[in-house]
Design a binder for these strands. Structure first.
Lengths: 187, 187
DNA sequence: GCGCTATATGTACGTTCGTACACAAGATGA
DNA sequence: TCATCTTGTGTACGAACGTACATATAGCGC
């Protein structure tokens, strides 16, 4: 009874990444402190022992998972903005980011809240968030002056949050109106 | 051994409120899912049995605690804005709210993140957040048109968050500049 | 084939958790 | 004074937790 012959080990090189993805699913459902080794293992379809083998405790796993969230969010924002070739197209890109589903999906927003709270307690993750914000500002910096970049960045953040709570979302025309007010002095 | 004669009961009418305040301290330190009956009891200086006596489970306690957070935040925002008698004073009030310590203290921000995440999982708290946002917009509505109210509200939110992460905070002049761009069309 | 190492897994241990519940004591009315 | 109700408290129990660790198998040089 001390060994289970049905437990055949299979090589699985993507396992670590799969566990990280499963951890994000668990975080969305149960929150950071509700994310346990056992729940993640079940969600990823791996045995409990894989947790201690691949990760050096829950903090290690959470760190990797949130780093991935920050990178993905940053890439989505910067990527959409990179398609713009001039200020007009940049404004359209911002409207897309705020109104569309590029950034403001419920899952992404919830993960952002959890990330903010987690980073408030772990200084090393705050550094990652700073890098992310700086990447966003540099992408905006191709078209707008620094103060406008900060204002636009904050607006994207705030409208994403409020849009998920408000009963009626703004339409693209209204969003564009507000964005144009903010960058009025630069053109 | 089955009864402890040193456990003298003292009447304590404010106990329930003290427990709620202690729960907020625990949430700040450990997060929502890390908030346990035992930790709150220790923080409030009450026996474990008081938890089940005063509250109908952790969800009940969290609900009351976050409702208090929402009301306090709303009152701080609306209260500062109520001091304004015209649009110019309203703009100065918004600068105070963003730049000063009225709203953007680390503790308040962290509680906001936890509240957002909690509300994303509990629909009845989302309703409370809607009321809070509506109260903010009505306070702004004394001076600005509805679309501008939404934009200003989102800007306050976003700048509060980014200000706590960014290495350098904006000064009052820059904040005022941005606010004036947003409400340019109304005066 | 045959050790050897890296990879992988099941289980056990001590801790902490929410909650139930028997019980103690001040308060109250007769 | 005494029965009764409200308020308050200590403890016990089953469940879930993180982690350590003995064990097992695949890959591989020889």
């Amino acid at each position: 009874m001390s060994s289970n012959p049905s437990a055949i080990r299979r090589p699985d090189p993507d396992r670590k990444q799969r566990i990280i993805n499963a951890a994000l699913d668990v975080i969305v459902e149960y929150g950071v402190q509700g994310t346990t080794h056992r729940r993640v293992a079940k969600a990823a379809g791996v045995p409990l022992g894989s947790m201690t083998y691949h990760f050096n405790g829950m903090d290690d796993l959470l760190h990797l998972a949130f780093t991935q969230v920050a990178h993905a969010s940053s890439a989505a924002f910067v990527g959409r903005l990179a398609e713009a070739g001039n200020r007009e197209e940049a404004i359209q890109a911002l409207v897309d980011i705020i109104a569309g589903n590029i950034w403001s999906t419920p899952r992404t927003l919830l993960l952002s809240y959890e990330l903010y709270a987690f980073a408030a307690r772990k200084p090393e993750l705050a550094a990652i968030m700073r890098d992310w914000m700086q990447a966003s500002r540099e992408a905006l910096g191709r078209f707008f002056d620094p103060l406008t970049c900060r204002a636009l960045d904050a607006l994207v953040e705030g409208m994403g949050i409020h849009g998920s709570v408000a009963p009626a979302r703004l339409d693209r025309g209204q969003i564009e109106d507000i964005i144009r007010r903010l960058c009025a002095p630069c053109g």
